[in-house]
Computed example of a mutant assay.
Amino acid sequence: MTNLANLASHVGARIRLLRKNRGLTQEQLGEKVQQPQSYIGAIERGEKNISLDTLERIVVALGVEPGDLFVSYLRRTKKDELEKDKHIDAISLLLRNRPLNEVHIISNLVADVLKALDSKK
Rank of each mutant, 00 (worst) to 15 (best):
N21P: 03
E65C: 04
R22K: 14
I15W: 14
V60N: 09
S92Y: 04
L93V: 08
K32W: 05
D68Q: 12
L18T: 04
I43M: 10
S119M: 05
S72V: 13
L93S: 05
D68E: 14
S38A: 15
A5H: 12
V11L: 13
I91N: 02
K78H: 01
Q28F: 05
V64C: 07
A90V: 06
V71D: 09
D53L: 10
T54S: 14
L82G: 03
D89N: 06
N108Q: 15
V64A: 01
R76P: 02
E83M: 13
S119R: 12
L100C: 03
L17S: 10
L109V: 02
F70E: 04
E47T: 03
A13S: 14
D85A: 11
E31I: 01
R76G: 13
Q28D: 04
T25D: 02
S9T: 10
L69D: 10
A13N: 07
V33P: 04
I40Q: 11
G46N: 05
G67V: 11
G67H: 09
G12P: 00
I40C: 07
V110Y: 07
Q34A: 10
D118F: 04
K78C: 01
A90R: 15
K115R: 02
E31K: 06
A111T: 15
V113S: 12
S92R: 08
N108W: 02
K32L: 11
V60I: 12
N101Q: 01
T77D: 14
A111E: 07
D85M: 12
E81Y: 00
I106C: 01
L93F: 15
S92E: 03
D68P: 01
K121Q: 11
L114T: 09
Q26G: 07
V60A: 11
K86T: 12
I106R: 02
I40W: 11
A8M: 04
R96E: 15
E31M: 01
A116H: 04
D112L: 01
A90I: 09
I15S: 04
